[in-house]
Design a protein around this nucleic acid. Sequence first.
DNA 1: GCACCGAAATGGTGTCATTTTTTTATCAGA
DNA 2: TCTGATAAAAAAATGACACCATTTCGGTGC
Lengths: 241, 241
Amino acid sequence: MAVLERNLSLSQRMTQELGRAIVCGEYNVHESLPSEAVLCEDFGVSRTAVREAVKMLSAKGMISSRQRQGIRVLPEEEWNILDPDLLRWSLESNPSMRVLQEFLQMRIAIEPEAAWLAARHANPERIQAIHGALDRMEAARGKDPEAALEADIDFHISILYASENRFFIRMRDFTRTALNVSIRHTNVIKSNPAGVVADHGKVLDAIERQQPDEARDAMYALIDEALRFIESELDQPGKTA
Amino acid sequence: MAVLERNLSLSQRMTQELGRAIVCGEYNVHESLPSEAVLCEDFGVSRTAVREAVKMLSAKGMISSRQRQGIRVLPEEEWNILDPDLLRWSLESNPSMRVLQEFLQMRIAIEPEAAWLAARHANPERIQAIHGALDRMEAARGKDPEAALEADIDFHISILYASENRFFIRMRDFTRTALNVSIRHTNVIKSNPAGVVADHGKVLDAIERQQPDEARDAMYALIDEALRFIESELDQPGKTA
DNA sequence: GCACCGAAATGGTGTCATTTTTTTATCAGA
DNA sequence: TCTGATAAAAAAATGACACCATTTCGGTGC
């Protein structure tokens, strides 16, 4: 059995194990999972641990558990895929180009609008945070790719915060996860990091000058470039060599 | 007391009760909630019910529960406010104009882009669903406001489905909740239901003719009208009489 | 100031209760 | 006598509960 040594509680480990298994498609939709008793045997834990894991996953919309009926996997439409845990499990198990494309389509909806709002509100502290991230991008450029990635992510997330809208801010984990994966893919071709930093600078500049439409367009261009790259990959798979 | 629906399980009722209480701000952030034992007393249930409710809410990012430390409310940033349950609790407890505005800002990010994608894919079945919703809007116009509201919601959700992107589709519950509240507010002033139906028709028309940019613009205009109304309300509160 | 001990809170277990479905048995009608 | 339907009973799964274990923070004593 694949018991992960963590300092997490038993229920949390069970949740991760079961969640991952479901995301991986090890249990068919609308089919009953093994009963709690069987899961206890399989994982070598008590029923409480299994039950709390079941509750956690049903809180995320992944399964339903009713008396006599047993535990059932709900159709994927019902899953709270914006949930950080679910996102992580999805990407770890299913890092397909198709998901990457859908990620970027979502980002292209969210982030330009967030930039628009950020330009309207222009809270100095929030702008300072964006500035800091951009500076770190510039500093790490060409030298420390890992730090550059971190700074890139911080840049985008700082803008979400600057929108001053709780729903945009909530997309933080979504954006972080999406960026972590997609930047590693798209940076293969973008061998012009100076240009990337400049493009990011345009967004910040528009926000500072409180030009919402400019900020939106600049952010749109930034993400659209990555999206077009992914879509060209999807059209002619295997082009990268 | 406030014992709700009898056909829900004890844990589910506890989850709702506790969730609502937390959303209402009855417990301060970073402060310990009553211990599980006390909650058992307060609600007259066993510890299992309380514990499962705690697990559910921590799966939604609302609380953290550690040994000896007790149960603590996490800062609002950590809450999965896209979760349907959390959304419902939020709106039932805190139906402020501010939240409504943030709802609409989010919709204006999501739905125009979804319409754009829908126009690109133009799956006949999905378009048929949008058509059906629009027809029902037209049929109920001026006669059955409740049916008109239902049809309106179905229209917007059908477009999310037509985007063929799992993340947009997932915004279904968000959109449904937002619309349910916001339409009731904005329809007070919009005494021109024929014009509303026509505006919706423009979106569908653009999708059918596979004109993504037109579809996006039409959807943007549709939501922007409601947003402007809300923002004028926020600027001069109490204008409605 | 350090170490040990105790209390308080969640973590984990075994057992019984409840609900729902399925199967079987009985009765009625052809 | 055979077939069908209905009702009752049993079984299988989750739901609920009381009890014990473990961990961690705080106090106290040396």
